[in-house]
Write a protein that binds this DNA or RNA. Structure first.
Lengths: 329, 329
DNA sequence: GCGTCACGAGTAATCGATTACTCGACTCAA
DNA sequence: TTGAGTCGAGTAATCGATTACTCGTGACGC
């Protein structure tokens, strides 16, 4: 593969001049620069990234480590990050930690080793993973879930959204409201449960552990949980569901138990999936501004890359409740 | 950030020995190796990727360039690629070309510059983009869509699946069958249309351009197309839809036009989305083995990285028709 | 007892691009 | 005419890790 030396030789200049010409630096005779450029084109020269990065001690690559590529919420974030990054000439590499702290650590290691310019992370692991980054002053923005560490964060007011959704269910006349949320320790899962309890408490209802269940953020776990909840003698008559994959499981459970969505069991789920309005009745959802999360995160990251002394900020975006038929009797 | 020299100095050995110890090479006194390892741990040493890659002239990173991160079909492929890569110690970086040849080229450039070990590509652009890779003998596997170039490919027998799905609709008594597929020039879109026509021809029906529409592989385009098709005086009584995002648009159109799924308009869509069985009646689909595509692609890529002289192969996986209520009157 | 060999460890070259420093040529003003 | 200043281009150091080659030590065989 052609190197810059080959280009320089072919153009009859020194490597230094070739480098300057290729990078559009000020001080090169236009005639020489043209010779260099055409030599480069002829040879199909592509700069050697590792060599350049080694010398420059910096890269124009951002790592985006998300906890689930198959979750549309995270892929929307990805799109937001990417749009911003592209606009300023950065590339984004997406890594899938799969809610697995070990995989997360591996990708953080890769990010550090490749000396990426910055990292956007939806943290699944615990503090030690993140410390690897902060210890090296790698610019970092956490999305979706807060971090104890010193870092910028972009979050959603998920707790109050959960409260609002639950209050909505109460106002619609549902009485025994349950909640299916994600694993303990995942902040968003805990927040949604907390918001749910906030609403019950605010309306002077007793919160009962019998009506709350946890499962992986997936359809099958939610299915089991819903079957379990809805098979109780005094089953819940409404459910708050913590994301759209879980909503699939819940709706399957309703259908299996022959319960009517809305009429028998009201449902509000987090994440406005494209299919939400296709089910009958249409599904009420809490819509999260995923794309904006990514966008804001990328902007914060770019700012911090430019100036590492910036104070750390936490941006909280609003989720909005979209009521449809599934939360009305 | 600590370098290998710092580690060597701290352990009181030469950099060469430090390097050998850190890489677990044979010929190092265990005592020295232990000193090196503990020095490295103490300093929080992380190798400098660019330096290592520069010297080694190779990386343990695969690039996966897909045309739409928000399409579950592609994220399933991603998961397949990643599982295989992880198992053999490679990392995967995901790049989103967004069906945009220009973005695709940019990411291919990045892949070349970073000297990734190999590329898995769902090609959206035209030949020149890919030539950049083949000219440099970068191992390449094309997925989902064929490539004129010399490369391994992993495809789906999408044409015959489309034929089979259409034949199924015919056998269910639908008479005027339409097709909503993706943009011209995208092979899978063309194949699905071709398979659809194959079936019509095989049953001695006239294929009519009036019943075929193209749109972006998205819900909104398919919505328009469906509205358009179904507003005709002698509207189709069944539709073959080229992917699950489009299916969302089609179902929205049905609902808007007050047509009953199945009874008024039979539908079979490509991709078995998790929500397909939640709509009423459940949606019949052509299920593609996305995860396996990714898995096979990664295996082929690893094989070619190990031995570049391997003959090029094309693997065609089978899609399976899953009939549910939406294709029965 | 001496030469050979094996082995562990160090020295220094190397990967390719960038850039500090240097050098020569030329301009312009005194 | 000459010295200061400017500008363009080349030389070589540098980034950090790997590794070919070299060197010294000690074991072993003849």
């Amino acid at each position: 593969m052609a190197t810059i030396n080959d280009v320089a030789a072919k153009a009859g200049v020194s490597t230094a001049t070739a480098s300057r010409a290729l990078n559009g630096k000020s001080t090169v005779d236009p005639a020489l620069a043209a010779r260099v450029l055409s030599a480069a084109a002829e040879l199909g020269y592509q700069p050697n990234g590792p060599a350049r990065n080694l010398r420059r001690q910096e890269t124009a690559v951002l790592a985006l480590i998300i906890s689930d590529v198959e979750n549309p919420f995270f892929t929307s974030i990805a799109r937001g990050v990417e749009d911003v990054a592209q606009a300023v000439g950065y590339s984004v590499v997406l890594c899938n930690s799969d809610e697995n702290p070990e995989k997360e650590r591996r990708y953080i290691d890769v990010a550090i080793q490749e000396r990426v310019a910055g990292v956007v992370l939806s943290p699944t692991g615990t503090a030690p993973n993140v410390d690897l980054l902060t210890a090296r002053r790698t610019p970092l923005v956490a999305v979706d879930r807060p971090l104890p560490a010193a870092a910028d964060m972009v979050l959603v007011d998920t707790r109050s959204a959960a409260k609002q959704a639950t209050t909505h269910l109460i106002s619609q006349g549902y009485d025994r409201i349950g909640c299916i949320t994600g694993p303990a320790g995942i902040q968003t899962a805990d927040d949604r449960l907390a918001g749910y309890k906030d609403a019950l408490r605010a309306s002077k209802r007793r919160t009962s552990a019998r009506f709350a269940r946890r499962a992986e953020f997936r359809a099958d776990g939610a299915f089991e949980a819903a079957i379990d909840l809805l098979s109780q003698p005094d089953r819940p008559d409404a459910l708050l569901v913590a994301n759209s994959a879980m909503a699939v499981g819940v709706l399957e459970a309703l259908s299996k138990l022959d319960l009517r969505l809305g009429a028998d069991v009201g449902v509000v789920a987090f994440d406005d999936a494209p299919w939400a309005s296709l089910v009958d009745p249409p599904l009420s959802v809490v819509s999260q501004p995923a794309y904006d999360i990514g966008k804001v995160a990328a902007q914060l990251l770019m700012a911090r890359i430019a100036d590492s002394s910036l104070p750390y900020t936490t941006t909280t975006l609003n989720a909005t409740l979209i009521t449809r038929g599934s939360s009305t009797r």
